[in-house]
Design a protein around this nucleic acid. Structure first.
Lengths: 346, 346
DNA sequence: ATTAATTTATATTTCTTGACATTTATTTGT
DNA sequence: ACAAATAAATGTCAAGAAATATAAATTAAT
């Protein structure tokens, strides 16, 4: 491949002149300018960015560490990251930890996992990335990023343990509040909830959203209408049984899988979703659009999380201060996705 | 961040000595060795790989161009790529074209698309990637990569138009043959097919697989049992109607979505999948595992495609010749995924 | 001739590595 | 025991590509 040296020689001018022309600097006649530009085209010249980076002490590259590419949330977040970063002419260096494959779904208990992340961060820093975005597979507190990194780090879809590392997360409280409010607006007075595992942040926040809306609508919170699931379809089926006995007209399942379990139970009872019983889910997994009837649910702002995390990252790289510098947490709005599983009974 | 120069100064030795020690070369006493290593630890020294790359004329990085991260096939392919490349200590530079968002599902007609890809290839080459892997969202002939690139390129999940660019694709003929053979083995004699759009390579190859197995089992091919769908659930529903009238006992739908349409039709007729009617799909989309009953289907070897494409890439980078150099196409085996939608009627 | 506008040559910068040169320490031969 | 030979340890410098500053040289215009 042609270097600037070769190009200069072919044009019969000096390296400095070529450099000036290529970088749109003054100090070159129109004639030489044209000659050099044409020759560059002809030789298919591309500047060696690696050499430029070394000199300029800027690589315009960002390391992205993804916990596992094959988990459904991650690709959309990365899509958001590439969306913004590519607009800003930053290059993504991708590291896929493949955690779920390596540690068989129990990665957050393993010490190896901490060590692995630290190694990968070091590798990326050796490659002179200007910052690191960590993309979690699901929302939780992530403790593996050292908070004394000499370059900025941003957490996408997880909470960092340190103030120094800003986090971009889902506004689960708002999302749950939104869909429960929708259920109430459709005339449902007795709304059951199927929670996820109650030790998860998702489940806790979504429950708060539920309680919040009840309170705002002056409906007394009844713990008897809260059934504890574990995110699986089977648990949805089981909890639906409990709740239906209590005479609820609508069920809010904290994810689409458990909502599917509600469908199973209702079907078994020869009743119809969207008629006798209304159901709402959460997450907008692909399959929920194919339920019968299609599930009304909340779509996670995955793309926006990636986009926002990148905005923050580049803001930090430009030496800017983050908007809400005190908290350093940004909760991104969810979108209510109205389909056919909720009946208007007003 | 500390450079080797700083580290050398702190230790009171020369840069070369530090370099030797850090690279485990002879020519340093145990005493200096210990001193330097400790000081490196203390200063949190990391070598500047960018400078090393410039000197060594090797970047150990590979550009990956993905058509659209949010299409279901792509993340698994990239997972396969990272699996192999990270083992081999190659860094992935990711470029997400976001084609489906930019050109609204019609990208392959647009001239802009060619120009975009060329630009992105150029950008990656400026960053001195040693090779480029192009990841297509679905299998077809990809014409946008120039075949006079000065660095190797490999096509994942698509056919290149040039012999110089090897392609790794799905063995659709084998996959279809496998699942149709399974249907025959279960005693089904009259197996209907719902094709995808017939101008797609997927649909054509899967039909060949179907015909091949019939021939091997000395069953006459009846074009009347082939219904033309368009990959959508609705078309599956429509075609199922046609085929059921002709008295088939099993239907092979060329994707899981259309298989879902068959479920819809059978349900409407108050019959049961896996009892009166057997159904097989293709692709193993996430939702197919949640059908009632779970769908027997063919899982695409997406991870393996990415893995194989990387193997070939690194083989090329090491100056090796590809196994089947004549063809330069590798068709990766699919896996038959037996669930509950096919009844044994032998 | 003088000034202004181009252009060039040269040196420096970034950091790491490797070939080569030099210094210091140790062993061998007489 | 002392010079010579060898080995080990360490230092010096250039290369690698591009950018840039500076000073010097050339050309063109006034």
């Amino acid at each position: 491949m042609a270097t600037i040296k070769v190009l200069a020689k072919c044009c019969g001018v000096s390296v400095a002149t070529v450099s000036n022309i290529l970088n749109n600097k003054p100090g070159a006649s129109a004639k030489t300018r044209k000659l050099v530009l044409e020759m560059a085209e002809q030789l298919n010249y591309t500047p060696n960015i690696v050499a430029k980076n070394l000199k300029m002490q800027k690589t315009r590259s960002i390391g992205v560490i993804a916990e596992d590419m094959t988990i459904f949330s991650i690709p959309d977040i990365i899509d958001g990251i590439t969306d913004y970063c590519q607009k800003q002419e930053y290059q993504i260096l991708l590291t896929n930890l493949r955690l779920f494959k390596k540690y068989n779904d129990t990665y957050y208990n393993k010490d190896d996992y901490y060590e692995l992340v630290r190694q990968e961060i070091k590798k990326l820093m050796e490659k002179q990335v200007e910052g690191i975005i960590y993309v979690a597979a699901h929302e939780r507190v992530i403790r593996c990023i050292p908070d004394n990194l000499p370059i900025p780090a941003v957490m996408a879809y997880g909470y960092s343990k340190s103030r120094k590392i800003p986090s971009v997360v889902v506004d689960d409280v708002g999302g749950a509040a939104g869909i429960v409010k929708y259920l109430l607006d459709q005339g449902h007075k007795k709304v059951g909830v199927i929670t996820g595992k109650t030790d998860s942040l998702h489940a806790q926040a979504r429950l708060i959203g539920y309680q919040q809306v009840l309170y705002q609508n002056k409906i007394l919170y009844d713990p008897g209408l809260v059934a504890e699931g574990d995110w699986t379809r089977e648990s949805g089926y089981r909890c639906a049984g409990e709740l239906l006995e209590k005479g609820v007209s609508a069920i809010f399942a904290m994810n689409d899988l458990m909502a599917g379990g509600v469908y199973d139970r209702v079907e078994e009872l020869k009743q119809t979703i969207g008629e006798e019983i209304s159901v709402a889910g959460y997450d907008d997994r692909e399959l929920s659009g194919y339920y019968h009837p299609p599930l009304t649910t909340v779509s996670l702002p995955l793309h926006d999380i990636g986009y926002k995390a990148s905005e923050w990252m580049i803001e930090l790289l430009n030496g800017g201060e983050l908007e809400n510098a005190g908290e350093n947490v940004c909760a991104v709005d969810c979108m209510l996705l109205i389909r056919k599983s909720v009946k208007d009974i007003t």
